[in-house]
Design a protein around this nucleic acid. Structure first.
Lengths: 332, 332
DNA sequence: TTGAAAGCGCTACCAG
DNA sequence: CTGGTAGCGCTTTCAA
């Protein structure tokens, strides 16, 4: 089923069919009607591959995230897609599952698809891969990684400040024994959040004891990280989680071990995902505007009015502490 | 950057480059090495559109779901993708958000992409759309919708039996006032789960009072559905939710209104998503094997060894009650 | 083992 | 307003 068959049936040239398909309003409405009818009768569906190949432009934006199951990433996806649809773009998403190898595959796949732009919301991005992408001539926007440059933009979130807010807030409440739960890809020297935590507590060294643990991102990981803290013998009066999702997992473990939140232990999340309001108790957390991130990403990637410079932008978003019921003064 | 440039640089024909790309091992290893080097040096990435256009085959499977944010659908996606990757296929997912109009757009988009197969895990599928798909010659598998036929397969889950199990279990516990929480697209005559509920309770008419409410699918919807029940004045001793996700939302509302679960009200979910074990209390639910659904979907769609008949299959999965802590005897 | 060339289905430019 | 036609970048015979 091709353009040609439609053309034959409608008694016009393929060029004309193409015109009505792209509705370039130069076609006489009577012939247009004839073509449209032929299309319907033949149940014709234009071949998108042929279209982008011939046209040279792609009309789809690629999105790569570490973990689409995580509400944080999903919200970005949703927002980006909504914005893209509003402008007639499609978005195809890929999930790396925090695997660097999968990330490489995904990036190459996107290049192969000649997407109009790529939003890479992943922490595993390495320099070589970024170069590969840039050389392919695809505009890209990263989240909290790399630096802006030609065709490369950056959306950052001030995680450091967010963590500081939490630590300060907890300290003001009187907490002196803290634990941090991260996930594998945020642990190690690369994790801004963990580093920020360490530095923040170190400022009160002597008066504050602390520890860090990490596990997989997600409900299970949060739970076993909490288990690890408990098993260590260290008894924090407050536990700071790298994100809400893990916090919900940790919450479950603490509850099951008989700890009351926040009377026995305070618990904080990060991101302010919907679930953080639906667990019991609702989580004190830091709001990260995923909708803004998604919207911004599309705005940046959307083909500019030619005049606009190709120089990438750099945007930094600020944290906002959200106080709910999972935190309180430490037990006496 | 095209095949031709690579060919030129490697001093071979485009045909040969194509051969090494698809690694048809007929290429002398020395020339193959030369080509590979040229590819690397040029940072060449084959154009996937040209590839599928020329080759005629697609190597990607389409997946359309109602709500990718819902863990139920996400798990199917994950499983389908894992299975697809194992066989060298990609999957591109689309989300309808329960919108019939978006479903139509998504189906057409998939046809336009000439996917090798399409898995449509949505309830809004109407006959005309299915016909359109079939006529496009794309093998499809539906979840709980339509009937098997040429190129059309079906994966079903015995929701009726699942709901009956729950109702029977609750009745055995002594519950006589039940409420059902559905979501908009499961309400109305098309919802097997709600119908099953109504029929199951009707069998004990006179001795059992009941009501049904519905709202959006998701955490918020579950919560406002619970609110609606409470506002109605009806005081069920047990609430049956169409899925776990909504149950978690309902749980929050009940808790906030001072109800203890299960002492004051029993609550059940459906699907057995991970979250159902992480809320407090963990939910009594019915296990639906999303991993099997995803795996099966790919198995069915995967291009057969030619000999295999094109006649679609029909598979029915059975429910399994999972007892946890959100249910108990009704209050005295 | 390799090359030449004919498409795949569509867009876009040039004529008319 | 419409038709003819040269590609887009790749795969795939058919020959060599």
């Amino acid at each position: 089923m091709s353009l040609e068959e439609v053309a034959r049936r409608a008694g016009v040239s393929t060029a004309t069919v193409s015109r009505v398909l792209n509705d370039l309003d130069v076609v006489k409405s009577s012939t247009k009607a004839r073509v449209l009818r032929a299309i319907r009768e033949l149940n014709y569906h234009p071949n998108l591959h042929a279209r982008t190949l011939a046209g040279g432009k792609s009309r789809t934006i690629g999105l790569i995230v570490s973990n689409l199951e995580h509400p944080f990433f999903f919200d970005i996806y949703r927002s980006l897609e909504a914005e893209a649809h509003r402008s007639g773009y499609e978005v195809v998403a890929a999930n790396t599952g925090y695997s660097p190898a999968q990330l490489v595959r995904s990036v190459r796949l996107m290049i192969g698809r000649r997407v109009a732009g790529l939003a890479a919301m992943v922490s595993e991005m390495d320099r070589a891969l970024i170069r590969e992408l840039v050389e392919a001539g695809i505009p890209a926007v990263f989240y909290d990684v790399g630096t802006a440059g030609k065709n490369i933009s950056n959306i950052r979130f001030n995680y450091r400040k967010g963590i500081e807010r939490i630590v300060d807030y907890l300290r003001d409440l009187g907490h002196t024994r803290l634990a941090f739960i991260g996930h594998h890809s945020t642990l190690g020297p690369t994790s801004e959040r963990e580093r920020a935590f360490v530095e923040a507590v170190s400022r009160h060294a002597g008066e504050t004891k602390w520890m860090c643990v990490a596990d997989q991102d997600g409900l299970h990981g949060g739970r076993s990280a909490a288990r690890e803290i408990l098993a260590s013998g260290f008894r924090p009066t407050a536990i700071i989680c790298v994100n809400d999702f893990m916090a919900v997992g940790a919450l479950r473990e603490l509850r099951e071990c008989g700890f009351r939140i926040p009377q026995d232990v305070s618990l904080t999340g990060f991101d302010n995902i919907t679930l953080s309001e639906y667990c019991d108790p609702p989580l004190t957390t830091v709001h990260v505007p995923r909708d803004v991130v998604g919207r911004l990403a599309f705005e940046i990637l959307k083909p500019q009015p030619a005049s606009a410079a190709k120089q990438g932008r750099e945007v930094v978003l600020d944290p906002e502490l959200v106080l709910r019921d999972s935190t309180g003064p430490p037990p006496k």
